[in-house]
């Protein structure tokens, strides 16, 4: 059978089957923030108030968002479960559904089903020092977790955030980055790739792995949570090894293509796992055991 997962949602073995008809809930777009030229953050509220009140999720989970007529697409939930009454997702314009979402206005109705998948191991993180390493739009799932931890600040040790993007204009959540930078109990390092800086840029210039090594966070009693483009992850892992981090203390979240989100459609199957059910959050040691097909 499948190898044991530290934080896999319950399966048939220990809970009743959940009936599934693939219906979407209706959500209204409450606000839209232009993060970059091709990334927008949508704040959504359930049209059905009761549904909104009952809705619960954990940082790291994802959902299937839909524009009726264009179809469904998978994104992580980018807001923290500690912030009730709404949910946010950040969407990069890339294909059909994301393109249509970018055309939407405040007040428009979109579809949502979820939350699906596992979550960041927040219970394991308690009492630990946390290092968040993000690149580009990969900050979205981290943002959910970062605010989750910041809202429960006293339960965690030191918090370090290393975040970079190709250029200053590609940084997402700019206001929040500034908020984190000014927090005394959070050490935030921001960087842009060489050539991506502006005259006003006060942060670092350099690739995320290099900047991470310079920031030199201690591996002692620490957990790393990283998300970004595959190439960044690859080099971040090498940097983390240099810094003395063990593979089991590093977590990331995968973005395989998905259609059902519930372990049936087969699209996100990697090895004997389904990214949608056994992930999207995986430890680096788990990923190393998988066929490299993500």
């Amino acid at each position: 059978m499948s190898r044991a997962m530290p934080n896999v949602p319950a399966t048939t073995d220990d809970h009743a089957l959940i009936p599934m008809d693939y219906t979407s809930s209706k959500m209204r777009i409450a606000s839209i923030v232009d993060e970059t030229s091709d990334v927008k953050t949508f704040r959504l509220t359930f049209c059905d108030e009761q549904e909104g009140e009952a809705f619960d999720y954990r940082a790291g989970q994802f959902g299937l968002y839909s524009v009726f007529g264009a179809g469904e697409a998978t994104f992580c939930i980018a807001s923290s479960p500690t912030r009730k009454g709404y949910m946010e997702c950040s969407v990069k314009r890339a294909g059909k559904v994301t393109g249509e979402l970018h055309q939407c206005n405040v007040g428009d109705i979109v579809g949502f089903r979820g939350p699906y998948g596992n979550w960041f191991p927040i219970d394991l993180m308690k009492g630990k020092n946390l290092v968040f390493v993000g690149g580009g739009i990969g900050l979205a799932p981290l943002r959910s977790l970062i605010w989750n931890c910041l809202d429960l600040r006293d339960q965690f040790g030191e918090i370090a955030i290393v975040y970079g993007a190709r250029s200053v204009s590609d940084l997402v959540y700019k206001e929040e980055l500034e908020t984190w930078r000014q927090m005394e109990d959070v050490s935030t390092v921001l960087t842009v790739d060489p050539g991506g800086e502006t005259p006003e840029w006060e942060g670092e210039v350099g690739f995320v792995p290099t900047v991470l090594e310079e920031a030199n966070p201690s591996a002692d009693n620490a957990i790393v949570i990283t998300c970004g483009p595959p190439i960044m992850i690859k080099f971040v892992m090498m940097s983390l090894e240099k810094l003395g981090f063990g593979h089991e203390g590093i977590y990331t979240t995968l973005e395989n293509r998905m259609k059902c989100g519930i372990g049936k459609c087969g699209r996100c199957n990697v090895g004997n796992l389904y990214v949608c059910k056994d992930g999207p959050v995986f430890s680096y040691s788990q990923l190393q055991e998988l066929p490299q097909e993500f």
Binding site: Y22, G71, E72, C265
Partner: peptide, 28 residues
Amino acid sequence: CFDIVDEATWNRGQRRRNWDCCSFSLFT
């Protein structure tokens, strides 16, 4: 394996489930 697609005219349509195949290059 299956796909889920929306098919619509201007203001109405259907969400459908269709057979899909891991041999197709677009699958993943």
